[in-house]
Design a protein around this nucleic acid. Structure first.
Lengths: 110, 110
DNA sequence: ACTATATGTAAGTTTCCACTTACGGTTAGT
DNA sequence: ACTAACCGTAAGTGGAAACTTACATATAGT
């Protein structure tokens, strides 16, 4: 049931920027904050939300904390999405089979 | 770039309930609203957001509007997620290969 | 034509959240 | 021990957004 917090976390634009920046590899907080239009404490708060959603992992290295993407939360979100994906495809297939002869409104060359 | 609005749309709990209810098949607005803890106009507003995000489709049938899940927005969201999925797996693999002999902290049977 | 049903929209309110500034804590170096 | 660097947390504030009530619109049936 962690897909809920993952969705809420990735909904915010700034938080998404932080997350997308981590896609290029692990990084300490200060480096993430530089280049972003918000303050460093804001980035810290965003990282906390991402961490609680299972989307990032934290590792201490001396005085800095290295953050990296955690595949766990990503996997749960993907699994949740796939449910809808299969349902939507099934429904679409069933609807196409229900219309026998013509192709419906989307007919090619009238 | 529609994955942004899709994420924002699915972040809200009530909107997610509407969307998950549509997973069982198409439905008019009134039926969606009954059984939800919010008013019917609220559901209408949520459906508008979901529609603009490409997550649902609308079809008029007499005096009612039938809503159903639209695979388009779902697909874009899935594609965006897969980028991170592959990146995260690559990074994880590279990190494992970087530690040669021992298995790190996760060693089995010390 | 009139009524009832089903839905979208406008206006207003309240709650929540992203952000900033200020502060405290921890580690490395001299 | 003292200083500097790096980071998390607390408190406060502005703005967005989810919700309700009230109103407008369109279709179907008699």
């Amino acid at each position: 049931m962690a897909y809920k917090s993952a969705l809420a976390a990735l909904a915010d634009p700034t938080r998404r920027q932080v997350f997308e920046r981590l896609r290029r590899g692990p990084s300490p907080v200060g480096r993430l904050a530089s280049g972003l239009p918000v303050s460093r404490p804001a980035v810290s708060q965003h990282l906390k939300v991402l961490k609680e959603a299972g989307l990032v992992r934290e590792e201490q290295d001396g005085t800095r904390r290295i953050y990296r993407i955690d595949p766990r939360g990503l996997g749960q979100l993907r699994a949740w999405l796939d449910q809808f994906w299969e349902s939507a495809l099934d429904a679409f297939k069933a609807e196409v089979e229900k219309e026998p002869g013509a192709g419906g409104k989307g007919e090619k060359r009238p």
